[in-house]
Design a protein around this nucleic acid. Sequence first.
DNA 1: AATGAATGAGATTTCATTCAT
DNA 2: GATGAATGAAATCTCATTCAT
Lengths: 217, 217, 217, 217
Amino acid sequence: MDKPTTERHLRHWQRRKQARPAEILDAAMAVFAEKGFAAARMEDIALKAGVTKGTIYLYFPSKEEVFKSLAREQVGHSLILATEQAEKYEGSAFDFLKFFYARFFECVLQSDVAVLPKIIIGESGNFPELARFWREEVIEKATDMLSAVIAKAIARGEIRALPIDHIAKLAMAPVLMCLVWHTTFEKTSDRTFNYTEYLATQCDVFFKGLAPEGPTL
Amino acid sequence: MDKPTTERHLRHWQRRKQARPAEILDAAMAVFAEKGFAAARMEDIALKAGVTKGTIYLYFPSKEEVFKSLAREQVGHSLILATEQAEKYEGSAFDFLKFFYARFFECVLQSDVAVLPKIIIGESGNFPELARFWREEVIEKATDMLSAVIAKAIARGEIRALPIDHIAKLAMAPVLMCLVWHTTFEKTSDRTFNYTEYLATQCDVFFKGLAPEGPTL
Amino acid sequence: MDKPTTERHLRHWQRRKQARPAEILDAAMAVFAEKGFAAARMEDIALKAGVTKGTIYLYFPSKEEVFKSLAREQVGHSLILATEQAEKYEGSAFDFLKFFYARFFECVLQSDVAVLPKIIIGESGNFPELARFWREEVIEKATDMLSAVIAKAIARGEIRALPIDHIAKLAMAPVLMCLVWHTTFEKTSDRTFNYTEYLATQCDVFFKGLAPEGPTL
Amino acid sequence: MDKPTTERHLRHWQRRKQARPAEILDAAMAVFAEKGFAAARMEDIALKAGVTKGTIYLYFPSKEEVFKSLAREQVGHSLILATEQAEKYEGSAFDFLKFFYARFFECVLQSDVAVLPKIIIGESGNFPELARFWREEVIEKATDMLSAVIAKAIARGEIRALPIDHIAKLAMAPVLMCLVWHTTFEKTSDRTFNYTEYLATQCDVFFKGLAPEGPTL
DNA sequence: AATGAATGAGATTTCATTCAT
DNA sequence: GATGAATGAAATCTCATTCAT
């Protein structure tokens, strides 16, 4: 995003060639989002990518690998970067969490990425390696990132000395709730779910609950 | 036809007939748990139930209906009952939530029921009616139940006047986290996740966060 | 029909026992009429006969045999009897044909029997023996009967000396037309087909065509 | 895409693709002819067409549609053309009928087309739309064609003023007889049935019967 | 004699994958 | 590099037939 130097120097045909797999992955994301893994047909993906079935097999050895690529590659962009930011973060845990929730709302809830965890949840029985990968590369990274911030906040006396892992997972639980609601129940529901306000309430309650004495605010 | 119909007079195959659907549903639950809906084969279910493929079709018209039956019937037992208890509940919201979490741990996390929401999350694209059913019959029932308790607590001044629906969904978020972890990530993880302690921490933090003034405890 | 003596003396239980197969055959006729052979389900037949699938197998070794029984037994009643009458018939060929058409209308078009030839036509590939049986026992018997009457009429000079077999089959062609129309096209048609008048026109035209000189009438 | 598209530039598989549906329909006709609709297996059709089961589904969505295609497409070639000829026909009704019978003998009795009406008769219960289609597109077209010729002949005084629809269906009855005999009884019969002579006799008798006064010939 | 639960072979249909062009 | 016709294994579902009761 803000690293234009390398990308800009790729010659045209390289970008073309490199674009193909990305186009396929985009299409695959959309189709998996709609149908889940098993019910997604290679033909649908091909159609949406503007190629034919055969072409997909030039870039990916199987449907399963298409999915794995998706799961692997879509993660770094949204998260690994965020982790780096978190590590040098020096502000209050409270501000960090607000920022974290905001980013989640922007980058996940408002894009197709949200369907990945959904599919991993649904197909973990059939793709244990993928569940493992996701846990290690996404969940634990996110947990660690949060844990680091929390640990500093405990050290500072900003929040109570409670089990750090629990705090981190409690912080993530409403995120998971939004994700599941968005991908699974939203479209059949008429009551709307205002994710932003929900997460704001969570911030309020959660930090009041974590504060050492009286309320922090 | 006009023979006595008490239990002990039922002929052998009559007893089987009554037991069959339950046997099949049990087997189906196990297979769906392992494979998800799409990858589950009727033959697997039949085998596990100790019958043949054809037999399943004597009791259920299609694989989809087997699943719907599961989703429908396994819910009432765990939840609808709980709702009634909640309605006459008069104690503190705090105690109620502790009880609610405890029941969830017993009845859901320690049985196969936990796979149902997992499958519904994974297959909601293919079974929108089922997602709707689950939302209406499970999620909203549970939310309403919690909301009632919360409303009373707010009226009593036990907890702050925050949006009731948000509070209810915040209370359920850690439950969802446990569920997803248990069904999706637990078996590939080496770090253990102590659900009971996690939910205890949640109680602590959550109620401190909801308290009107200083800490309630 | 006019042989009450033997039937009347059957003891009650004999008639009961003998009634079962007949009930099944009646039901089978109705179901075959509606679905054809292949699409007819034993369960449907059983249901309509007021018994269960298993019972059918007490009386018939297979679905195929049920059908063969039908084809065999329903024929004698309508035709073999008629043949005897024809042999002693001494009137004009014209009157005989009028009578023959009238009987056909009553006994075939207004009963389910009409579906048998239909099914035999449709399934002759799968049941060659049955097609053979039907040709030998029904078509050729009918042809022979007509041929005998025609031969006498030719000898008498009532009709021209044309190939007897052709005359017989020409006499039967409109019958076949009625049969096929009735069983195949009638229910999807709005234009009505008045079989009686149609056969009257046939009598008129056919006998004028067969007359030796000028018109006979 | 912008390559020349003349026949000889078509690539090999393009030529196959165009030929495929016809190959499959030919095979299907043969198999349906032998087994009827229900007993015909897609595998048999595929085998006979020199492809595999799956290939059929590239061109036809179901077995039923294969059959409908057959019924629809094989009709125009034999009949619709004939109708046009009939409309401009100005000769005697007698000559027309001779011509009609001759064409029927050539185009229907000596090809597989004859099995289509047979199957429609046999399966009309299961495919009412098809029976309707056949009646409307074949039977009524043929009837109308004959009716037009007959009406002119009545106007000219060539034949008597009898109900036109009856005359038309009487003209067709021997055709139906040939058809049924050929497809159903011929192969199990030893007495041969000379269709040409049979239809010649019909011409003789039928027109003598229709003539207004004395014989027309 | 009758039942009806259970069977299992066999049918249609789908779709990931291959490969000649 | 791209195509898309063809494959064939596998899945769901049906139903004639059997047999313990």
